[in-house]
Design a protein around this nucleic acid. Structure first.
Lengths: 230, 230
DNA sequence: ACGATTATGTGAATACTTCATGACACCGGC
DNA sequence: GCCGGTGTCATGAAGTATTCACATAATCGT
């Protein structure tokens, strides 16, 4: 599951550099040169993050951000704004316009990538490749492996995604519908009760080490991963 | 498989010193004295790394870097920038996103070689000529040979590249698409399923020594070399 | 407290997907 | 033409996903 980033930037040079650096680090990159095409691209395929230049021909970056935030389907997408100079950053009437972070040009690739990771971690922790740990469980997306008390777990792909999501969002209840959205995809037609079966299989895999207790049922609401036992 | 380096440097003295030192250590060295000739050389033969002076007659080093990054065929080439003074280094780093590393003159040959190796290892560890070892497997790019528990393996060129890549990137899952990019090249049109066949051939070669278990299938994700057995 | 009602757990059947494997065709070099 | 190396395909095997039917458990109104 690779992370998709939409770059909205009119200057071809910077566009290319961004594209290159992001692709180099495993992101799937889409590009738009102005606000209108960015928005129409967004309606087609939802990326996991938008890199948005502040100065754009036609519709300004701020306007684009505003429209994204006003669209029910898009509003949850993290936005990082690229601003030309530090002074302009102050002009921006703040983060309330919808951007999750700002980067002022010129910036280093290192800074860019760091901020992207930070924003993603904040907004969608399961999209990072960082290893996750919780209560004796460890999951490493890079090697695609999970361990319970140091012992490797045998998980199917779906169970792996489920556990990954739960571990990156602990102590929080998710309805079956939410879990379907997060671990299957938005437009999938699957019975909600199917979740139950995968939960059972996940519990089954965690059983030998006793970690199955972490996956808790919240009657009438959904499921939760919690280190606090009932 | 010798590593080719293109040196772009206008001052004849430094040019000679670089050429000598690099050749001394087994690199194949190409030389250009200005940006234009560098670019035209690049279109002819793609080196594995570019040593690029920041101050050049005519087109600046930064501009050359930018053009390299804008060229689809060249963009993946690692670049090390040579800058005259430490102060300039900061300037450059902020402005330019294309270089992989910087060296400030004057520099010792030792530092130069170390950085080259580091960059190559970071960008494409399988391009280094260092022998690799993992779990009883040993692979030496220089002699183009691989051993399992001391016994020579009979590998085709493709299987060799695959094994080399896996050994330089262990404990990490790669999708078939990624493996195609890494071991075949981006612009190659090959069925993804073909990977399966080469994996089998590689496993077949490793079988007699039992090392075939290291090449693991990750269902739904790709393949992985891991010393941790399932 | 009771049964009715609703929600969840579980095992098994079935439909799918993905992967391993062997056979074979192709291609360039000798 | 032979040969090693390579890419493609067909097929069967293995592994997963989804659904269903029914068991079990929690909740609610009376």
């Amino acid at each position: 599951m690779s992370t998709a980033i939409l770059v909205v930037e009119d200057e071809p040079g910077i566009q290319e550099v961004l594209k290159f650096n992001l692709a180099q680090h495993g992101y799937e990159v889409g590009v738009a040169s102005d606000g209108e095409s960015a928005l129409s691209l967004l309606r087609g395929a939802m990326p996991d993050l938008v890199l948005l230049d502040w100065m754009l021909p036609g519709m300004s970056g701020i306007e684009v951000a505003r429209r994204i935030r006003n669209d029910a389907r898009l509003k949850a997408i993290p936005i990082i704004m690229l601003t030309a100079r530090a002074e302009e950053r102050d002009k921006v009437q703040g983060l309330d316009l919808g951007a999750d972070d700002y980067i002022t040009k010129p910036f280093s690739p290192h800074e860019l990538l760091a901020r992207i990771k930070a924003v993603l971690r904040r907004r969608a922790p399961e999209l990072t490749d960082d290893p996750v740990e919780a209560a004796g469980l460890r999951l490493d997306p890079v090697s695609h492996r999970a361990f319970a008390s140091g012992k490797a777990l045998d998980l199917g792909p779906t169970e792996f995604r489920l556990l990954h999501f739960f571990m990156t969002h602990p102590e929080r209840v998710y309805s079956r519908a939410q879990l379907l959205d997060q671990c299957w995809g938005d437009h999938v037609f699957v019975e909600e009760r199917t979740i139950d079966v995968h939960i059972r299989r996940l519990r089954g895999a965690l059983e030998t080490s006793g970690h199955d207790r972490l996956i808790q049922t919240v009657r009438g609401a959904g499921y939760r991963l919690s280190t606090t036992l009932n």
